[in-house]
């Protein structure tokens, strides 16, 4: 968590967890820290953390088992809103890269490189 970050805390929590799941730092079906553990560790309101968890569940990144806790989901392809958001970010980055004189061929090469 970054205290200088002006975004709402629950969004920071969401982004942090999402990053862990997407990069594979958190394996599918791995248990997330409990709301209580996170609340005491970060000194953050447990209801705020619960809200972040609920939204992540709605977006399909995690699933919860009553009485057991929340777990990372395996597939995260379902989230159309997030897809659109990321694509618009890529577009912004592309605009800046073009401004700096990076050619389309170079960009295409980059995409290929990432695939491999």
């Amino acid at each position: 968590m970054n205290y200088r970050d002006s975004r709402p805390i629950y969004e920071q929590i969401k982004d942090g967890l999402r990053k862990l799941i997407v990069t594979g730092a958190m394996a599918p079906d791995e248990k997330l820290p409990s709301v209580r553990a996170l609340a005491t560790q970060l000194s953050i309101n447990p209801n705020t953390i619960q809200r972040a968890y609920n939204e992540l569940e709605g977006e399909g990144y995690i699933y919860s088992v009553p009485g057991k806790g929340s777990f990372a989901s395996g597939n995260t392809g379902a989230d159309e809103a997030r897809k659109a958001e990321l694509l618009s970010q890529v577009r912004e980055l592309l605009a800046e890269l073009r401004y700096l004189g990076v050619s389309n061929a170079e960009l295409a090469a980059l995409v290929k490189e990432e695939q491999a």
Partner: peptide
């Protein structure tokens, strides 16, 4: 500060 908030919020959660 963080210590007491963590104790208080732990109580809220638990």
């Amino acid at each position: 500060r963080r210590q007491v908030w963590s104790l208080v919020l732990g109580d809220v959660a638990q």
